[in-house]
Design a protein around this nucleic acid. Sequence first.
DNA 1: CTAAAGGGTGGAGTACGCTCCAAGGTCAAA
DNA 2: TTTGACCTTGGAGCGTACTCCACCCTTTAG
Lengths: 129, 129
Amino acid sequence: MRIGDLAAATGLSRDAIRFYEKAGLLDSARLGNGYRDFPPEAVPWLHYVRTAQTLGFTLAEIARHGERLRDAPDREEGLTALLAEKIAVIDERVAGLLALRADLAERVGSGCALRPGEAIVPDAARLLR
Amino acid sequence: MRIGDLAAATGLSRDAIRFYEKAGLLDSARLGNGYRDFPPEAVPWLHYVRTAQTLGFTLAEIARHGERLRDAPDREEGLTALLAEKIAVIDERVAGLLALRADLAERVGSGCALRPGEAIVPDAARLLR
DNA sequence: CTAAAGGGTGGAGTACGCTCCAAGGTCAAA
DNA sequence: TTTGACCTTGGAGCGTACTCCACCCTTTAG
């Protein structure tokens, strides 16, 4: 498929796709006229890339993941390990969010958000222009 | 406290603190010699800023939160509303992460990560240089 | 044949969140 | 008094992840 089709299928811009290719996230064949020719697998792969991005992975990290997949002697094992790793990252993030949530909820519920010495933002007005 | 003390207390660089001030995240008094003079509350406030940042809030958003705190006629009510809002955002984010986690876990656990037509990365090797 | 739609390249520009530097003022200890 | 630590400002530079643009070629429809 050509870049426009891939863009339509993924919701990405052509420029973004070219950028990903330059970043080593994506490789393409070329047609006789110089046009890029992407395999259909590029669609789920780019969806995966976007997902990983929203999880906070940089493009460089995602590219490294891709390399690991490519180099894995046993493809399935490599992918499983990668997914397990991602799950661990997610769990960490969720735990962090829940801890903060509990912290905030405690202050809200108890109506003591401004109790001296405990407030997150003890005197915000003094700190802001 | 002066900028060096605040930097030491928060683990931030002086440049970062000046940057935050410019960004409207922080206001400081000035000593007679022009040195910035931060109130001790700046320490927990900056910790809060960093926490919010790791949760994915941009500095602009955090600054807006701060402004709302400053402008709230009833300080305590304003803070409580803000915290409640943040909790809602956190809940959304957690839900998204957990959905993704379930999706990944399903593929890992079932050992069918590479089942044709369902694979996240059907043929990564073809897509990478 | 021509015009529009789509593709290619290179390079500039953008937003965010800083870091680093130069040039200079301030202050406390030796 | 001099040294050194600490402070000031302004501006440049950087990495990430793009977007936009100019300029040109290819393909397709009428």
